[in-house]
């Protein structure tokens, strides 16, 4: 069990920074009580907007197979439950990559 002291300090500092970002939002939300309708609309858009910002590059900039599979997953998501969307999207990307796209 070898642990380098510099590595250990950097790992612990990363952990503290990460935890503070997870804790910080809760204290911001308390100050947002008297929001107007527009602010509330922006606030309610946080979940989908953050999620799509994380994955948009892999949907749109990686290649034809990924973009096409994303489109298939979007169509699937209009009707089907989440687990089916995951299976169909992943299967689509595997088949499209095998097809050479």
């Amino acid at each position: 069990m070898n642990v380098d002291s510099v590595n250990l300090i950097v790992i612990l500092a990363m952990a503290v920074i990460t935890y503070l970002t997870r804790l910080g939002g809760v204290f911001i939300s308390r100050r947002l009580a008297g929001m107007d309708a527009r602010m509330r609309a922006a606030f309610e858009a946080i979940p989908p907007v953050v999620l799509i910002a994380v994955v948009a590059p892999s949907m749109l900039t990686e290649g034809v197979a990924e973009t096409a599979a994303s489109a298939i997953a979007i169509v699937a998501a209009l009707r089907l439950p989440l687990i089916a969307v995951i299976l169909i999207g992943t299967l689509a990307v595997v088949l499209l990559r095998l097809a050479g796209l």
């Binding site: 609309a41 922006a42 309610e44 858009a45 979940p47 989908p48 907007v49 953050v50 999620l51 799509i52 910002a53 994380v54 994955v55 948009a56 590059p57 892999s58 949907m59 749109l60 900039t61 990924e66 599979a69 994303s70 997953a73 979007i74 699937a76 998501a77 209009l78 989440l82 969307v85 995951i86 169909i88 999207g89 992943t90 990307v93």
Partner: peptide
């Protein structure tokens, strides 16, 4: 990616949410 697409579509319940999702996708990419 597929999981996040499924989750995001579940939040697409209003015009302003839709506008936010499209703008976020394009700006991020």
């Amino acid at each position: 990616t597929a999981m996040f697409i499924g989750l995001v579509m579940g939040f697409w319940k209003s015009r302003h949410a839709g506008a936010g999702i499209v703008a976020a996708a394009l700006a991020s990419a």
